[in-house]
Design a protein around this nucleic acid. Structure first.
Lengths: 223, 223
DNA sequence: TTGATTTTGTAACATTTGTTACAATTTTTT
DNA sequence: AAAAAATTGTAACAAATGTTACAAAATCAA
């Protein structure tokens, strides 16, 4: 087995390829492959193991009351699945997990994984970072959803995307995807973008958004 | 110092009072008191230590674009603050933290806390449970916020509160609090409750909700 | 390139939610 | 018990969003 790509996995960050191999050789694990579109887990199923995406991309998604599918996030290799649901009091999948592309997973049972954590400071620290990052990701998402108006959500999103001081960025997705992400209707996204543009706060050409008036955007979400 | 109440803290669950005292004696820490209403931390401030509420109650809250305060959660003693923001890549407070009642906190610096984790399997397991539970809490909240209609949010909330098979439960808060929790307007909550009642799905007397038609509630959020 | 497919813009209209206001009711305080 | 404060019910109207539909534009595939 070739573990070299795992050097870039959040769980093994900072650990040499040799050491990863040594650690994993002493750990029991399984491997499983999925075709694009195949369901890996269903919402409500128990989580009894840590799953690491060796290659491919998977997504988490929810279904709302009207049947609309809401994508929660993408997890590309070499990320981990369900890491925040392996411990705690509700150890079951909160979302459906679907393979976007052909995918292979490495699966380590919880008890085996606990031994790994206790025996390796580095992996422990990495795992703490990972599940903390999940909370932080969800917390950020709640910030969007808490804004009542779509313009507010967009403003928050745009400001977040340009925190680094850039004046423009590329929506890495279609308006339909963005609408799913915000849990709103697609034409409403188009309308809100147009309004922000009409008001001179942004300039949109294709999927590239130029931020023209950062102050007014900030006011939209802090007044 | 009296650590007896910490036996009930999630971080020290399953550890005897004597052992808690022994462990904490060997750990450097600070104590700090806050008056009711006082701000403990502001959104965006760095998190550099674990904070445990020794007595009192604190809350986390956000401010949306229109100035409305959205309460995220209450943390009564002997809970921990900011536990999901001590590790990971964005180690700063995601919300304002305010003392609801007079409060005392025990504060342990991150580096000291790490030693604690490495030296005590039980505390490690408890901490993993705690930060995982945070993700799970946030994930549950996102489920509410993702429903577009208020009736959908309410249905999700009511079904969640009666998962255990009970037919009734007590909203432990006012309609105004519930409105904040859902990030909607207060009269809209009253209206939605009335509609659910008119349609015969629930019966509300005061803060007690009787679930009359579980199937229709489930349909509201899955059709 | 050409044709097919996806994405975007936009309009008309229905529905939902927010806002404001005030009275009725309940709860808390004195 | 009486008074004060908080909570709830409700109405009228404004504003925002959803729905549906279709054409224009952009992107993708053959």
């Amino acid at each position: 087995m070739d573990y070299s790509q795992l050097v870039q996995s959040p769980l093994f960050r900072g650990i040499s390829s040799d050491e990863i191999e040594k650690v994993l050789t002493g750990t029991s694990k399984k491997f499983r492959k999925y075709k694009a579109g195949e369901f890996i887990a269903f919402s409500g199923e128990p989580v009894s193991s840590l799953m690491i995406v060796l290659y491919g991309v998977v997504k988490g998604e929810m279904v709302d009351y009207s049947g609309r599918v809401i994508k929660i996030e993408d997890i590309p290799a070499p990320g981990a699945l369900a890491s925040a649901f392996l411990f705690g009091s509700r150890t079951f999948f909160p979302v459906n997990v679907v393979a976007i592309s052909d995918t292979e997973l490495m699966i380590i049972e919880k008890s085996d994984f606990l031994k790994l954590l206790m025996n390796n400071d580095r992996i422990l620290g990495n795992f703490l970072d990972m599940i903390s990052n999940r909370s932080q990701f969800l917390s950020e998402k709640i910030k969007f959803l808490n804004f009542r108006t779509i313009k507010g959500k967009l403003a928050q999103y745009i400001l977040h995307q340009t925190m680094n001081g850039r004046l423009s960025f590329n929506l890495g997705m279609t308006q339909a995807d963005l609408a799913d992400y915000f849990a709103v209707a697609r034409p409403s996204i188009a309308r809100a973008l147009k309004e922000l543009e009409d008001e001179g706060l942004i300039e949109a050409s294709g999927k590239v958004i130029n931020v023209l008036d950062r102050k007014s955007l900030a006011q939209l979400i802090s007044d």
